[in-house]
Amino acid sequence: MSLLEVTSLDAGYGDFQALFDIHLTVETGELLALVGANGAGKSTLLRTIAGAIAPMSGHVRYAGADITGQPDFMRARTGIVLVPEGRRLFPTLTVEENLLVGGSTRRDGPWNLSAVFDLLPIVADLRNRACSHLSGGEQQAVAIGRALMSNPDLLLLDEVSLGLAPIIVGQLYAVLPNIRERGMTVILVEQDLSRTLAVADRVACMLEGRLVLAGRPAELTREQVTDAYFGHGYGYLDTDSGAAR
């Protein structure tokens, strides 16, 4: 049985529809990478899976149960945790307090303060600092640690590398295998193609709110992915063919 099953999903903000007829399944223990250009709908899809956005139509099933109508905080308690775009740490709380709030779901599992400190030593060093004074990379490390604190079954990582120096991104990606070795399922949103193709079990490309290509990195050519990324040959934004949508 798949851990997550998204069917015929339409979603958006107010009158603006950002996702069109998304079908997606994710198996337990898998790392799925969502790639696509800015505004392709990757973050919206993650937020809809996390329950922060209610879909316009379609269904989300998780561990066999239909959770389409379940609010975000209930989903976190059943094991779906989102590391949101922009980190969204609690700025007036210390690093350690942020982690403790992350553990609010009180789910059983391997992750606790000392496990997170072992995984991310930088976070341990900062434990008593207020989060408003951290660098972007430090904040991202805390945000990942905070999400782990709730011992999720499905971890949703939104734009981990956004605005960070490559060396820091490398350090963050280096801990992914440690997170995954305990069986956690991960959906990763990323704009950096080569980094994504290196870590992902499966890649799904989004273009203007639609899933246009999915497969294992080994089975996809780099051209296929970049074409899907930029929309070449998909009838979108394709200036050469002269055909608008």
């Binding site: 922060a52 609010p71 905080f73 209930m74 945790v81 989102l82 700025p91 709380l93 609010s104």
Partner: peptide
């Protein structure tokens, strides 16, 4: 206190708090 901490977190960012499994 745990609930005091959650109150400060809710004052900072109630949406992020919901994503941590807490009903703000």
């Amino acid at each position: 206190a745990r609930s005091g901490r959650l109150m400060r977190a809710a004052a900072d960012d109630s949406q992020a708090l919901r994503l941590m499994g807490v009903d703000n």
